[in-house]
Design a binder for these strands. Structure first.
Length: 211
DNA sequence: TCATTAACACGGG
DNA sequence: CCCGTGTTAATGA
């Protein structure tokens, strides 16, 4: 049953032998919403392949202040795991499931072996690095050059995109944490967006109308 | 000028 | 009552 799920997402990326190896060695895991998969300072001993769901990747500063870096979707893997496993260093980021998530855990030893053995695996890992780097640049641009209202709009769009829903489950406080801002500002900006007709606010949820 | 912090009132579950 | 929300006043960058 692992293999059918696996083929849905990865059959176009990996060669057959690799798919079979993954299905034999990988451990299928169901994780519910809001679970912390990775903490700052933690050593990682296996890497996740996402089959379903969304994972939120956050950066923490010294005081425990947070900032959303990007979301991981199906077909993605965690780039931080890759460098952590190989360099045997600690995680620099925090990962929390945004929705219920299905993933396959692969032991580190295998992923190193496969780098030499399978071309498709090598490409996948390099692609993954590239994608995460691009998303990181977006996050930096956002913080450095954009005002909070633009960032909020981008956040809402991104969240809508990854969850595949126009209705977002979130409190103003949670949004404020993700964007590293305060609830007062988020409340005010959301109110303004509602007034201009872009969204509809209700308790614990936001509905995107036109964007 | 605009964000943050603290404080308070409102109201729905 | 508790919690999310809307607002305001004070302060600072």
């Amino acid at each position: 049953m692992i293999i059918s799920e696996l083929e849905k997402q990865y059959s176009y990326i990996f060669e057959k032998d690799l798919l079979i190896e993954i299905s034999k060695i990988g451990i299928l895991k169901e994780v519910s919403e809001g679970v912390e998969l990775m903490r700052v300072g933690q050593y990682i001993k296996s890497m996740p392949l996402l089959l379903n769901g969304v994972i939120k990747i956050l950066r923490n500063d010294e005081d425990g202040e947070e900032l959303l870096l990007y979301f991981l979707e199906k077909g993605d893997t965690c780039a931080m795991t890759l460098s952590c496993c190989m360099g045997d260093t600690k995680s620099e980021i925090r990962a929390i499931t945004e929705t219920q998530t299905t993933l396959i855990m692969i032991p580190v030893e295998k992923m190193e072996l496969w780098l030499m053995k399978y071309k498709s695996w090598r490409n996948f890992v390099l692609d993954s690095y590239h994608n995460r780097l691009m998303e990181m640049l977006n996050a930096i641009d956002s913080v450095a050059f954009k005002k909070m209202d633009e960032r909020l709009l981008g956040y809402l769009k991104e969240k809508s995109k990854v969850t595949g829903s126009k209705i977002l489950q979130a409190t103003h406080q949670e949004i404020a944490f993700d964007l590293h801002s305060s609830r007062v500002v988020i409340s005010r900006l959301l109110k303004a967006l509602e007034k201009e007709g872009s969204i509809e606010i209700s308790r614990n949820s936001i509905k995107l109308l036109k964007l």
